[in-house]
Design a protein around this nucleic acid. Structure first.
Lengths: 201, 201
DNA sequence: CGAGTATAGTTTACAGTGTTCAGTAAATTA
DNA sequence: TAATTTACTGAACACTGTAAACTATACTCG
């Protein structure tokens, strides 16, 4: 059965190369400017071929969405080494914002974009897992008396909304009222302020 | 010169009806599913006609963007009646979230969507004005010793990011980990928690 | 009032999009 | 070698934003 195995390998390689091409175009040209035809041209196949490997455009984006998430998840799991939950929480927040700024197209895919949401409700496992890491950390903080006696979910969503709000305002250029050169410094202060408001509970 | 005046009126009426049709389609079908042709069909003119009143699709969206903003601005100005700046701040936050949930397509246009951003940098006056109302309120809070001795912009961006984060997570369905029926209650608690963390400074 | 011009609107067209499907050519199997 | 399975493509459909050329009407001026 060496032949079918090789064929499976080739099939996987093809899927991979489609996804890679799509992601590259994504990062280069932005979400809205990626078309099936462009992806096809990039890998030097006809557009129709892509439909032999993915049912539609959404499936490609959903796949990339998942991969972006597992990338992010890996970064967040790194923080689990940090013993002190408050320090860990701060690091998770910093990671989040850094990820958003370093990989805006990935972030877009993960948290902002509208497109491939049909499947999101049933299959957003990475999202849940990532939220759970945050949740877990906050639970520890509360246990150790750092965050008052609050509902874990309330605090978790509060924290997440905080960093996501910042990240998406930046990515979508809605902080135009702040001079560009002052922004990085200011952002750091905002993050510091955020953790401070939490710590002094 | 009654003739040119009438013509101007008619020109304005036409612009108005294009914008109205566009906004309706927007709300009905979502941003991505509105095309020039659909707008044209709605007002019973040819697609090309629209280009006699707007240079391109972006200009339509930019116009609607501005109108959505002035609508929001009107709501926010209402809060200026409230004397106590802390209470005013809380009301502004609640308004913000309510606006986002009641008019998701408007909100999308204002704060999330990517499309018509070329002009945003130079002409986002409503955005600035609206930010200024928040800023002003926070300045008063700081003056009265409610928010510690912090930089106004830092706190303003913090607060904005907070509510915007919540709003955009809701609109983009990224709170799927929370059972739908528990969400409204939880959101209120998150908002309450947010104001609380600020107040106890 | 009639001729000429400005204007509003339409028709037609181009280049792009996602997607489908009949058809082909090559690889594999019998 | 013949039959079958597989991978792939070209052409087409129904859309998209937009531009240019054209027409019909409204208005201005002699």
């Amino acid at each position: 059965m060496g032949i079918t195995e090789r064929r499976n390998r080739e099939k996987l390689r093809m899927r991979r190369s489609i996804l890679d091409a799509a992601m590259k175009l994504f990062v280069e040209d932005g979400y809205d400017n990626v078309s099936i035809r462009k992806i096809a041209k990039r890998i030097e196949y006809s557009p129709a071929t892509i439909y032999l490997y993915f049912t539609d455009k959404d499936e490609i984006f959903f796949q990339l969405h998942q991969e972006a998430f597992s990338k992010f998840l890996a970064v967040q799991k790194e923080t689990l080494k940090i013993q002190n939950p408050m320090a860990r929480l701060a690091k998770q927040g910093a990671n989040y914002l850094e990820f958003a700024q370093k990989h805006p197209e990935h972030y877009d895919l993960m948290f902002i974009i509208k497109a491939p949401l049909r499947k999101l409700k049933t299959e957003w496992n990475c999202g849940f897992e990532s939220f759970d890491i945050l949740r877990q950390t906050i639970a520890e903080c509360i246990d150790q008396g750092h965050l008052g006696n609050n509902n874990v979910d309330v605090v978790a969503i509060h924290v997440w909304a905080n960093v996501h709000g910042l990240a998406s305002l930046i990515i979508r250029d809605r902080l135009a009222m702040i001079p560009e050169d002052l922004l990085p410094q200011l952002l750091q202060e905002v993050m510091a302020f955020g953790t401070e408001t939490l710590a002094n509970r």
